[in-house]
Amino acid sequence: MPANSWTPDQPIVAIHDLHKSFGALEVLKGVSLEVMKGEVICIIGPSGSGKSTLIRCINALNPVDSGSILVEGQEVNDPAVDKLALRKKVGMVFQQYNLFPHKTALQNVMMAPLKVLKQPRGEVEKRARALLTRVNLEGKEDSYPGELSGGQQQRVAIARSLAMNPDVMLFDEVTAALDPETVKEVLVAIKDLAQSGMTCILVTHEMGFAREVADHIYFTDRGVIVEHGPPATFFTESSDPRTREFLSQIL
């Protein structure tokens, strides 16, 4: 293993010329982007434009065909990559929450630190309770996922991922499956996280939210990044006709 020469002033996630196909369907056609530590990135774009695939490649849930993904200087697109070490650094929250239904909220949050990181139970429990409080779920520690609303489940999922103390958080359309009235509570939790300095990469359809929290917005369409920029200019001064059409439909 070569010495890792990554320093915090370099991009924490650097993607270069990423290609990915599912059979004959090319989903990513040469995507490049860079995320600095502490930045909040939103990836927007029409359905099927490869947003979710892109974000899932970052923690090696999807293997890629060619190109490079560096996470803290470590190449993800390498058969010899230590996936477990990578996933300890990169947390992920899914559209469908994917909580473990046979465990309570607290057990869901505690499970990975206990079983994967082998940390002492007392310390893990203390941290897990603090995390649940942080996402406003005090009092729901002993509820099973089936007893919680969608928004509550999604916040448990965020706490579960944070319990591993990741350096980067990935959010894959985390509000898309929620009832409108519970979307806000999840967005508040993410915003709090973003403002605390966590590096976040979000795939989202919530334009207002993206505008509010993102440092940088990427617009993808048909497997390429069409345009990107800080929200202040992205929403008002976008030049590409595809971006303008998408924004006109959604805003």
């Binding site: 477990l84 899914f94 994917n98 473990f100 046979h102 499970m111």
Partner: peptide, 27 residues
């Protein structure tokens, strides 16, 4: 068991064996 359970466990750095015995089989 839905594949999302495997993916969630994978993203939390569980090994395949841990996922099977601690998350999938109990369900």
């Amino acid at each position: 068991v839905p594949t999302g359970q495997w993916e969630a466990a994978e993203s939390l750095a569980f090994t395949r064996g841990q996922t099977l015995w601690q998350i999938i089989l109990p369900q």
